[in-house]
Write a protein that binds this DNA or RNA. Structure first.
Lengths: 203, 203
DNA sequence: CATATTCGATACATAGGCGTATCCGATACG
DNA sequence: CGTATCGGATACGCCTATGTATCGAATATG
């Protein structure tokens, strides 16, 4: 008479989330079918309805799982970046921290952003994860400015916002014109210069 | 025995495109139904199938019509910007040029971008329109640098890319957190600084 | 004004996705 | 090892979107 969950349940959930990552990236959230996701995961729709009520819930769960991973990785990388590197080098380390799932994650997080703009509830979730990501960047940013003898001319959180905006905008262009700009190039190109643009010498 | 088109045909097309703008912005491209669009336009699906073969074609047509409008407006504004304004002021003028449809257009162009990343054919269309938009910005950027006695340290086209990247990234954050950042604020905040970041004094 | 053609409305057939109810194998637990 | 719950598979009915074929009204042309 156990009331808890079984050990295989989290496994199925994980497989469904993995399959959703692939499927949403390939076909899009709205376009993807619950059955397509289950097929890819090697289940029938029975498994889905036993774990999620709607495709939206799966979307939320997928976003939250992977967004949390991104924040974790950012925290690790921020703690490990070699502070004697050039600014461009440090920025490169930071922006490479999102990992090898890059393209799929870019597609899905962008689609979740659109979803969030249309759904206030999702917007709250997204805003919180973004805030966590910026918070994870703060220590390294502070150290970079300190070591360079510079003082940011706006709040560090706003600097983080700028970096993220630039990174997302740059990745968009990279993925639309992959021949022109391999992913990551634009961000490295501008990251360091932009940081310097919002700083003045220490008095 | 005329083989041409009727005068009401472009009108229906326009009404369908207008309805598609609203519907796609509200529900999303993949989520929207052909019938929803026709309803909003005051037609039945018969009108749709008489004008377009697929929803994708309608999407292309909508994107191309409005993207062309954006380029036109950018050309006008770039020619009218008061060159004696501060950089921040001039940037504000430029970035405000996309007009009052802003939010709907942001949603739709972002969704078209996702579509383009998954469909090379659409990527070509998008890349061309982006190139036109950047070209429309070049004269005003050149003049801004000249008047300030600065020389951009990278190609002007790349400066335009940076501005666009920052603008899109900033707008994303604005629309996700509209209470925090009214649309346009982030771009104005950083635009001028960013331009300065990729420039050195004239020798 | 007459007629030919275009264009949008209507009607129909089809397919595919969805949600639920039920069943049976797997798993926890005494 | 036996039993009770869990978890995924199966099967069913429903509904909605789609595309086409046809019809009739609007419109161009002589």
């Amino acid at each position: 008479m156990p009331r808890g969950l079984t050990k295989r349940r989290p496994q199925t959930r994980a497989r469904l989330l993995d399959a959703a990552l692939d499927t949403f990236a390939e076909i899009g959230f709205q376009g993807a079918t619950i059955e397509q996701i289950c097929d890819r995961a090697g289940f029938t729709r029975g498994a889905f309805y036993s774990n999620f009520a709607t495709k939206e819930q799966l979307f939320y769960a997928l976003f939250e799982r992977n967004a949390a991973l991104v924040v974790e990785r950012m925290e690790e990388v921020a703690a490990q970046v070699d502070p004697t590197l050039s600014w461009a080098g440090q920025i490169a380390e930071l922006t490479s921290s999102v990992g090898p799932d890059e393209r799929r994650w870019f597609l899905i997080s962008t689609e979740f952003t659109l979803y969030a703009i249309r759904n206030p509830a999702a917007a709250g979730v997204l805003a919180e994860h973004d805030a966590r990501l910026r918070a994870a960047m703060l220590p390294i940013l502070r150290e970079m400015y300190d070591r360079a003898g510079l003082v940011p001319s706006v709040e560090l959180d706003l600097v983080a916002r700028l970096l993220i905006a630039m990174r997302e905008g740059g990745m968009t262009q990279s993925y639309v014109e992959p021949a022109e700009f391999p992913p990551g190039q634009l961000e490295r190109l501008f990251g360091a210069a932009v940081l310097r643009a919002v700083a003045t010498p220490q008095s």
